[in-house]
Design a protein around this nucleic acid. Sequence first.
DNA 1: TAGTTTGTTTAGTAAATACTAAATAAACTA
DNA 2: TAGTTTATTTAGTATTTACTAAACAAACTA
Lengths: 179, 179
Amino acid sequence: MPITPLAEIKENFIQGLSQISQYWGFPKSMGAIFAVLYISPSALSLDEIVVHTGFTKGAISTGVRSLARMGLIHRQSKLGDRKDYYIAESDFYKAIRTILKGRENSEFDRALSSVRDTLGELESGTSTSGKAEEWNFVHERVGEMQSFFDGLDNLVRVVAALDTMNQNTVQKVVGLLKK
Amino acid sequence: MPITPLAEIKENFIQGLSQISQYWGFPKSMGAIFAVLYISPSALSLDEIVVHTGFTKGAISTGVRSLARMGLIHRQSKLGDRKDYYIAESDFYKAIRTILKGRENSEFDRALSSVRDTLGELESGTSTSGKAEEWNFVHERVGEMQSFFDGLDNLVRVVAALDTMNQNTVQKVVGLLKK
DNA sequence: TAGTTTGTTTAGTAAATACTAAATAAACTA
DNA sequence: TAGTTTATTTAGTATTTACTAAACAAACTA
């Protein structure tokens, strides 16, 4: 049986991560950029990424900015070289923490706090007319949702604060949950 | 200070969940449908949801199907009534489990297995020409990514299999992680 | 200074998406 | 049977999105 050439294997890998990226609602280009950097032994310049992915310079420029903001790749400067070079973050748990920390996204936070505001309004007053029953029901429901969000937020904050989140940590969590 | 009327509070809540829905890449209509059902003391028919959300019947029809598939709402039949009625799932942890269980999405799974395939190809052969070094590097990297995915998958499977995931469970996990 | 090399921004485009309006289907009722 | 009531599907549309091509900007170099 013939051995698949490395070039073809790499291409498949890049396409695979592109699809995964797309599945999670990110541009395919971002998956491709990360894939190229992840399997490159050396840091790559913007133009090199262009060659390897087939996207244009503009697309790569915005793509690397997004990836860097998520902590999935890092920008490097070489002395005496005007180009920027990029490498992939290979510690995925570290990247996850970075993403979780940066969730004060304003967009998302504003949406979340609207639920909190709703709860506040429900708590500040009581129904004037005869709709006390419905008021209480809505109050209870929104309160439960807020508790859920608080719980999640708590979990996320703890995870984000961890300085060592590795395979071992995950295993411990799995072990605990199995009980 | 004047008390905000319940109708207005409800409207704000619906808009809030719509934004959150949109933030996570789902249609705004889905957030609105869930919000309406979540704060409704009784099950609602398709037409009632239409009235409360302002979307058309077609949009609601597809929206409720998506939400039901995720386990976020449930369809109910009343005897002697041809209409379908819908209620919100108020146990969010339960909903999370349903979503996690349904992740054999074919779409996502196919993307993930493409990474596994890449690893398989790298393991089956070795480089013919003098590119052994690069081959090994790529092999190592892809292997690490696969390990990460396996770890996550393991965690997800355990969580999905839990029959009791509640606030308490989350608290225990938080406690463990803090150590 | 003018000319290169690099990265970013902008204007325009093609494709995907979420929606509406309306046709259709399916189940019941007179 | 024809007529209602309900839900789904389809055809078309407006908006958003990810991209390309090209203009621009900034930093160096001869």
